[in-house]
Simulated assay, not measured.
Amino acid sequence: MKNHAPTYLKHHFLIAMPHMADPNFAHTLTYIVEHTANGAMGLVINRPMDLSLADILEQLRPDTASAPLCQHVPIYGGGPVMVDRGFVLHPVGMSFDATVELQDGLALSTSADVLFSIADGRGPRRSLICLGYAGWDAGQLEAELADNAWLTCPYSAHVLFETSSELRLDAAAKHLGVNLNLLSTQAGHS
C-alpha cells in the first residue's frame, strides 16, 4: 500500500461552489497563502469593502492629509479573522518591514509601511489590500474540499491583479473550464 502525501493548496485559488452556505465565503475567490498539516490561511480577493486606502490611512496617521489617489484604492474583506489587520499582496521587488516572498513573483506584506508607500505613489505598482483573513484548522479545509464546498484552481497573476473584482470568481472558474452559473446549487444531492 502506497503512502500518499497530502495535497496542499498553498499558492492556489479556492472557488466557492454556488451552494456555499457560509455567508463569509458565499461567492468568494480566496488566495491560499499557506496550507500545511496544521491548517490553512487565505485571503478573499473579490469582496471590496466600503472603504478606501484613504480611510485606513486616516486611522493610521490622522494628522496627515492623504493623497487623492488613495480614495480610489479599494480595500477587500480578506476574511472573518483579525479584521483589523492588513494584508497586502503585491509583486516581488519591493520589501517592507514585514514582507514574505510567496511564489511566482508574489509577495505578502503585513506592515503599515507598505500602505504608506502605496499612498505616496512609491509602493508596488500592482497590489491588493485586504483587511482580515480566512483561517482553517488542521484538516478543516480538506474536509470542506471533500464535501465539494470548493473548487481549486492554480494561481493566476492576471486574475489577481488585472481582472476587476466582480469578474475574478468567474475568471478563475473559466481557467478550469467551469461556468459557475451552470452548476447546480444542489451539488451533491441527487
Rank of each mutant, 00 (worst) to 15 (best):
T28Y: 03
E58S: 13
M20S: 13
L167P: 00
E58T: 13
N46Q: 04
P18I: 11
G139T: 11
D22E: 12
P91N: 05
E144N: 08
T152G: 00
N38V: 01
K2W: 10
A16L: 11
L53P: 01
G77V: 00
S190Y: 13
L131T: 05
I32Y: 08
K2P: 06
L183C: 10
V44K: 01
S117N: 14
L160G: 02
D97E: 15
I129R: 02
V44Q: 03
L169C: 05
G188S: 08
E58K: 14
L69F: 12
T110Y: 04
V73Y: 05
R47D: 09
N3H: 12
H189L: 15
E144G: 06
G93Q: 02
E34W: 04
P124R: 00
Q71Y: 07
T64W: 07
S156N: 03
M17F: 04
R85Q: 14
M17G: 05
F116Q: 10
G86D: 02
A119K: 00
P48Y: 10
Y155I: 07
A172M: 04
D147H: 09
G39F: 10
Y76S: 10
D55Q: 04
I32G: 02
E34Y: 09
A16C: 09
P23G: 08
G105Q: 08
T152A: 11
L29Y: 06
S111F: 04
P62A: 12
S52K: 02
K10N: 05
D120W: 03
P124C: 07
I75N: 06
N181P: 00
H35C: 11
F96D: 01
M1V: 09
G79R: 03
A16G: 11
K10H: 08
P80S: 05
G139H: 07
D147F: 00
A40C: 06
H35M: 08
L29F: 09
K174M: 14
S52A: 14
H12Q: 15
E58W: 08
I129P: 01
H158M: 07
N38T: 13
I45E: 06
L167M: 14
P154G: 12
T163L: 06
N148M: 12
T36W: 04
Y76M: 15
L29I: 11
R126M: 00
S165H: 05
W136A: 08
L160C: 11
N181D: 15
E58M: 10
P48L: 11
E34V: 07
N46V: 12
Q186P: 00
D170T: 09
D63T: 11
Q103F: 13
G188V: 06
Y133Q: 09
A171Q: 08
R61Q: 15
D113V: 09
A187K: 01
L43H: 06
D137A: 15
D97P: 00
M1P: 02
C70E: 13
D120C: 02
F13C: 05
D104M: 05
G139Y: 05
L57S: 08
I32K: 02
P48T: 12
M82V: 11
